[in-house]
Design a protein around this nucleic acid. Structure first.
Lengths: 244, 244
DNA sequence: CGGCCAGTTGATCTATTTCAAACAAGGTGG
DNA sequence: CCACCTTGTTTGAAATAGATCAACTGGCCG
């Protein structure tokens, strides 16, 4: 037995949260999994230009970003447990442009690429679940674009926190309207394309509206409906499929 | 015979520009294709919330965008001949969040979704080519994020034009360092998250540097190496695979 | 001719940046 | 235990990129 048959694996838990996966499929999936690897906070999981390994995040937070030639960086994606670290790993020869670093200490579970591709070929349900994940990731990129292009800093920050609230809720990491959010204000600046000092000012402005509060690493939501209206947050993009 | 066997189909031409596809595969691909449909400029190809049809663009330009509840919109992707219009079409039940409208008059080629999925299952080369296209599209989204988050309007505009130059070059639509770019300054504002008046000012500023010039619908590049340096443009993200 | 659309230009206003300083928490070495 | 350093956050004052509002231009079409 490679793992608990119930699937003590963040990827399996995540897939199950939006698809019906039968025990055969879980077993097949786990047979392609290798034991998780541990990484420290700030460690690089993938470097820009790598031909990346096929990792799924098991525990912790990671950040996918584009290094800019000006020296700074633009974070493009927050990787949570159950997420694939870099989809380019499907194409054996492909190189990736985005780097990934750990925001916290992390457990990453490598999969055997060839075995994984065989699974996708042989199990239609897994193929569908996997493609669904790709679409979800794309939707998050699209909303990130809209955050950067069409929202001011307060709206963008609130929108980002609501997205995290929603995603963490799906993997069971929300305790009564507050989340654990390990990112620094520096990271958030790199996410939203604003300076860290402005992140701080924006946080205090939001705090003063009474809609949410945060002191690292916890973010508390006081009035989610009103915050959603303020940020223009509609979770439809995170719920492509109706719940099972 | 459904089509010229040489593949007079933008999708086939595009795939061939970065992969070796043999005649059997071309024939299989064309067998899933249906005759193209014509649309007018400004017509909606896909509406937000649709379960979208499986279209590949045959001719013309289309824009994929998120309608914002404030009434305006954020364009997230420029769709050129050979591009898939909305990848969500692979999942029969999936709904899309982004809408697509025609920027010019357009020919869109519908594919039979079930037949197309069968192709992906049965022809590894097509599957690979298709997944490569998905990765390319993702890379363009990532760079779009970096444009919005980490570049000022002049750099962003130059970067966007260089991306179009590169993409159009690949499908044979560049005549000696100038391209035909049918987008209005309004569209470009919706792309870059700036106001149309600022697009106009940015265009004249760029014109005065002598690096490029434009009067609709043509954009001319005078000094591409210098412009690339100015915009921080590195085409690596558009060239995942080495040329065949 | 009149009207509409796309682009330009000017003047003012505002969100965000930049630069600078200060503070708190935690870790390390004396 | 204290001095000291680093990292993350806060606050202030000045500078700037881009927004806003408004007016004007030049096609183009009926």
């Amino acid at each position: 037995m490679t793992e608990e048959s119930s699937g003590d694996c963040a990827l399996v838990r995540r897939l199950r949260s939006y698809m019906d996966i039968n025990p055969d499929e879980v077993a097949a999936l786990l047979s392609a999994a290798r034991p998780p690897l541990a990484f420290e906070a700030r460690e690089e999981l993938i470097r820009s230009g790598d031909s990346p390994p096929l990792f799924f995040l098991e525990r912790g937070w990671a950040l996918r970003y584009l290094p800019m030639n000006s020296g700074d960086q633009q974070i493009v994606q927050i990787i949570l447990p159950g997420d694939i670290v870099d989809g380019a790993a499907f194409l054996p020869e492909a190189r990736t442009v985005a780097a990934v670093r750990c925001a916290t200490s992390v457990l990453a579970r490598p999969f055997d690429p060839a075995a994984f591709r065989a699974l996708i070929r042989d199990f239609p349900t897994l193929a569908k679940a996997f493609w669904l994940g790709v679409m979800l990731d794309e939707n998050m990129l699209l909303e990130h674009i809209a955050r950067l292009g069409r929202r001011n800093s307060a709206e963008a920050l609130a929108h980002l926190m609501l997205e995290l609230h929603h995603r963490l809720g799906r993997i069971g990491e929300v305790q009564d309207d507050s989340i654990t959010m390990p990112l620094s204000q520096n990271d958030i600046g790199d996410l939203l394309g604003i300076t860290p000092v402005h992140v701080s000012r924006t946080f205090t402005a939001l705090r003063q509206t009474g809609l949410m509060d945060m002191d690292r690493p916890s973010v508390r939501f006081f009035d989610i409906p009103r915050l959603k209206r303020f940020a223009g947050f509609d979770p439809a993009y995170l719920d492509i499929m109706p719940a099972p």
